[in-house]
């Protein structure tokens, strides 16, 4: 008897929420990025768990994880490059000090 899917999904939801909370309350851009990675991982977990419990013979869910990882890698590369650029300009990566979009 294997573990019910809801265990994994609850865990996924909690991890995701922690990610959201991190994005909301931290001011360091790098930490915010890490939190985004957390959220992506939570989603990955849900993908794999649901894929298994659907009983399909094809691992479609795992392939989606694969794609998510590829996108995450690209996003991190670009995001970190932007952070480096911002840091060079502003000498800070605190998002509350980077507000040139203020209306």
């Amino acid at each position: 008897m294997s573990l019910g899917v809801e265990y994994y999904l609850v865990l996924s939801a909690l991890l995701f929420t922690i990610g959201v909370l991190g994005v909301l309350i931290r001011r360091n851009a790098i930490i915010i990025f890490m939190c985004i990675e957390l959220m992506l991982n939570a989603a990955n977990l849900a993908f794999v768990a649901i894929n298994r419990s659907l009983g399909s013979s094809d691992p479609d869910g795992q392939l989606f994880v694969f794609f998510v990882m590829a996108v995450a890698a690209a996003e991190v590369a670009i995001g970190l490059a932007i952070i480096v650029s911002v840091f060079k300009h502003k000498k800070t990566i605190n998002v509350d000090e980077v507000n040139s979009l203020k209306g």
Binding site: S2, V5, V10
Partner: peptide, 21 residues
């Protein structure tokens, strides 16, 4: 999120399917 996850176990699609091991 937790609520949705808990109820997902009773979802018909997931219920009927035999989780592959």
């Amino acid at each position: 999120g937790v609520y949705i996850a808990m109820t997902a176990g009773t979802d018909t699609a997931l219920e009927s399917a035999q989780a592959s091991t």
